[in-house]
Amino acid sequence: MLNNLIFVNITRFFLLILVQVFIFNHINLFGYVNPYLYILFIIIYPFTANKSLLIFSSFLLGLFIDVFSDSGGIHAAASVFIAFIRPVILKYSFGISYEYNTIKISSKDYLKQMIYVGSMVFLHHFILFALEIFNINHFLLFLNSVLFSSIFSIVIILCTITLFSKK
């Protein structure tokens, strides 16, 4: 059971990198909007599993995406940040009891799930674009990118969760 969990997470890690690099980095809706599906790994990483491991693997995940999209360390920074802040977000979206029940994310009710995914995605995109654009002259572009990419990512991530959830 435990081995199976590790195997599933490792496969998911590499699969999400490939899907992100080859498909979702090239969508460019309206010229600049891309969804970032790969943070799904951080979002559905088992809630009770080792937190240090999550932070480290998120760093690797972001770094891989950075290598492929030539963006320095922006994905790594944003991923590490949401991996670190995840317990706090879990607490306020699912209540204090999330640590004791090992229910999967797909079986929670939809509002809580949306708050959780929404805040994770928004925080990630905020840091990502703040580091990428890094210029006060392009503030409008920054807001636009954060808003539209967040909406796009949230929709894609929720769809993926619903699609791959076991009934």
Binding site: F59, L63, D66, D70, G72, G73, A76, A77, V80, L131
Partner: peptide, 15 residues
């Protein structure tokens, strides 16, 4: 977190 985050910021600034 602090270690990895500052390392990524370092990489970003380097680019």
């Amino acid at each position: 977190f602090i270690l990895l985050f500052s390392f990524s910021i370092f990489l970003t600034i380097q680019t």
